[in-house]
């Protein structure tokens, strides 16, 4: 029986609170999930057997498997991330659910995922190719769905050179164009960060939600660096470094240590670390016992994190007081 190191109460199956008191083994399949998703996800499908589709695709930063969600028409793509703290369970109506995770489906620009394949093709072949020969993946066959997103075709010109021979179009990755596009992404992210009271400075601040409590000594660079960190979660490491140069981000004189990510995390880890993303419980057991061992996603983040920039995970990670 695992016991929490901190004084969290244990609630076992008991007759008074939990009905029968029978416990399912901890490694049994989770068969129920709590998800917060954009309203369009619940748009009814045109065909009765259709519906949104959860599928695994390559995380465009790490190349590892991650969970995504296509809406019914397969025109919108969402990434699924799990918010998870240790020692959490749900009461849902008149039931209890052991798995205390809250999944978030949030929009993701499918061009990031296509870009991963364009960069790969550029490294391997370095020539103009039809898109359907670039975006193929024997391990992630759903990746071809990306090419059916109207938005991908509309925005492809931001990241490629194009050639038309006969009636066929051929494409090649353009780093120069991509950096210009990414800079626009950074700019639009900075705008939202500025209006969102998110703490982007080096110091850990509390009460980021209380309006009017803006930190006054935050510089423009802090916002740009923060936005760069967020966007770096969607591009390969090399490109992230190129983007940092392109944005002329000054080197940090004293790279700050990111807050520990262990206790609370909001990352790909729970969803992508497992072959089968429904096996949430077993992976947690492992993580809990060896908290010093980093998950694949954390390792990947640690790599990207060299410049001390903030990342999405740092944004969601615990303040030091809440960690041990």
């Amino acid at each position: 029986m695992r016991r929490p190191r901190r004084a969290a109460p244990r609630a076992r199956g008991s007759r008074t609170m939990l009905g029968s008191g029978r416990r399912r083994p901890a490694d049994s399949h989770a068969d129920q999930w709590v998800l917060v998703a954009p309203e369009p996800v619940t748009d009814l499908p045109m065909k009765p057997d259709g519906g949104p589709l959860f599928t695994r695709l390559r995380n465009p930063s790490t190349g590892e498997a991650a969970l995504y969600l296509f809406n019914s028409s397969a025109q919108q793509l969402f990434e699924v991330k799990a918010f998870h703290e240790e020692y959490r369970s749900w009461f849902i109506g008149q039931t209890v659910q052991h798995d205390g995770r809250l999944l978030f489906a949030t929009p993701v620009d499918p061009l990031f995922l296509v870009l991963f394949y364009l960069i790969k093709a550029e490294k391997e072949k370095g020539k103009f190719q039809p898109l359907d020969q670039v975006v193929v993946d024997s391990e992630f066959s759903s990746c071809t769905m990306l090419l059916q997103c109207a938005r991908v075709m509309d925005s492809l010109h931001h990241v490629i050179e194009e050639k038309e021979i006969g009636n066929k179009k051929f494409y090649k990755y353009s780093q120069e164009k991509t950096l210009t596009w990414l800079k626009k992404k950074v700019n639009q992210t900075v705008k939202v960060l500025k209006s969102s009271n998110v703490c982007v400075g080096g110091r850990v601040q509390s009460a980021t939600f209380i309006s009017g409590k803006q930190i006054t000594d935050v510089k423009e660079d802090d916002y740009v660096r923060y936005a760069h960190g967020l966007i770096s979660e969607y591009i390969p490491e090399d490109l992230s470094a190129e983007l940092s140069k392109y944005l002329q981000l000054p080197e940090l004189t004293s790279p700050e240590a990111d807050p520990p990510l262990k206790k609370r995390k909001f990352s790909d880890a729970p969803v992508e670390a497992e072959e089968d993303y429904t096996k949430f419980n077993s992976s947690d057991l492992k993580n809990k016992k060896t908290t010093s061992k980093m998950s694949a996603a954390q390792k990947a983040l640690a790599k990207v994190d060299k410049t001390g920039m903030k990342t999405m995970s740092a944004f969601f990670s615990a303040k030091t007081k809440a960690t041990k």
Binding site: R12, R22, R23, S89, W90, T95, H98
Partner: peptide, 8 residues
């Protein structure tokens, strides 16, 4: 809840 309930 701030605890684990080992039951579904």
């Amino acid at each position: 809840l701030p605890c684990e309930v080992e039951h579904n």
